[in-house]
Design a protein around this nucleic acid. Structure first.
Length: 342
DNA sequence: AATATATGCAAAG
DNA sequence: TTTGCCTATATTT
């Protein structure tokens, strides 16, 4: 459910909460017991995102911290093990922290009702407070895991719980490289290169709508960014990629860079231009569906005005007024305006 | 209590 | 192209 912006935001959150710390790693649910045992007691030295993949690098305790993950080639990278996670449709990380922990969103991932403020619990002042490498400035105990927690990362002043991931495994640097090799460029990453994206779209008869969802073509785009970027570009999702001018494909990339980086910064997807948002409450009847990523702080834009076409089927197009269309394509709902997008 | 739904992916047919 | 999987939440029976 999270698209790439969410995962980049997670990578930043892990850096700010746990960078350089020796972590206790466990699997309360038990399904990741082996992997947790391997990582337990190691030090977090890197936190990276590529598309929807999150990579957390763990060095054996005592290795120098290098959370940028940039110093490849230096001694010490060899013994880094990586925790690769992918949230899939329902995965989510939830966080809780001591009062002195950096402020983070309570939950990042699948839409979750906010449970309240931080789930921090007063220290039991008993002997069973888990000691951590970097001693917390004051006593703090992590809350009990709630639900099916596959992995729990416990640091000096914060805890992160993962539920419902579609992927969760410990891999080597070589295996990480292999995963990255089959991913397309990521518009959020500084090293994201538009050329392979433009080339891939242009050489295929597969519809541009499907190609935007193909993580080997472009990494991090999901159903919302696909629908919204194509609307903003005025491109019919059902057009064959090779029939879309390269300059238009390149413009879509440039737009994705802006939209997705903004999403990563703010924690919410907003694609509407101010002039296209309704002044008052938009007539959209509430169909009981989540309209927007709920991670991070709520943006200034009401969630029912954040999108042009995503989940707006049957409602009037914000630009031309004709009803927004929906169709199932390759198992996912595709939303678009049949008039504005050609 | 059972069912429907979700911003995803990959293996099987 | 279809199926299976991972989970929490809202809606319906």
């Amino acid at each position: 459910m999270p698209e790439g912006h969410t995962v980049h935001r997670l990578a930043r959150t892990f850096s700010s909460l746990f960078a350089g710390q020796t972590l206790r790693v466990s699997s309360p649910q038990g399904r990741f017991a082996d992997g947790a045992g391997v990582l337990d007691g190691r030090r977090l030295v890197a936190s990276e995102a590529w598309g929807k993949q999150l990579f957390l690098g763990f060095a054996s305790d005592g290795a120098p911290a290098d959370v940028s993950g940039a110093a490849s080639g230096s001694a010490g990278t060899a013994d880094v093990l990586w925790l690769r996670t992918h949230l899939g449709l329902y995965g989510a990380w939830t966080f809780a922290g001591a009062p002195d922990a950096p402020e983070v969103a309570h939950a990042i991932g699948a839409p979750r009702r906010r449970i309240g403020e931080r789930d921090s619990v007063p220290a039991p002042s008993g002997p069973d407070v888990v000691p951590t490498a970097a001693a917390p400035s004051d006593a703090w105990a992590a809350p009990e895991p709630r639900g099916q927690v596959r992995v729990r990362l416990l640091g000096a002043h914060a805890v992160a719980d993962l539920t419902g991931p579609t992927a969760c495994e410990v891999i080597t640097a070589d295996e990480k490289k292999a995963v990255e090799t089959r991913l397309g460029p990521d518009p959020i990453r500084d090293d994201g290169d538009p050329d392979p994206f433009v080339a891939a779209v242009g050489r295929s008869r597969v519809t541009i709508g499907q190609q935007l969802m193909d993580q080997a073509v472009v990494a991090g785009v999901g159903n919302i960014y696909r629908a919204e970027a194509l609307f903003r570009a005025g491109v019919d999702p059902l057009r064959a990629g090779r029939d879309v001018p390269a300059a238009t494909v390149r413009a879509i990339w440039d737009d994705l860079v802006v939209l997705m980086r903004d999403g990563a910064d703010h924690g919410a997807i907003v694609t509407t231009r101010p002039e296209d948002r309704g002044a008052g409450p938009v007539l959209a009847p509430d169909r009981g569906r989540t309209r927007q990523n709920t991670d991070g702080s709520p943006g200034a834009v009401p969630s029912d005005q954040a999108f042009y076409v995503y989940h707006r089927d049957g409602l009037p197009c914000r630009v031309c007024g004709s009803p927004v269309l929906v169709k199932e394509l390759a198992g996912r709902n595709l939303f678009w305006c049949g008039v504005c997008q050609t």
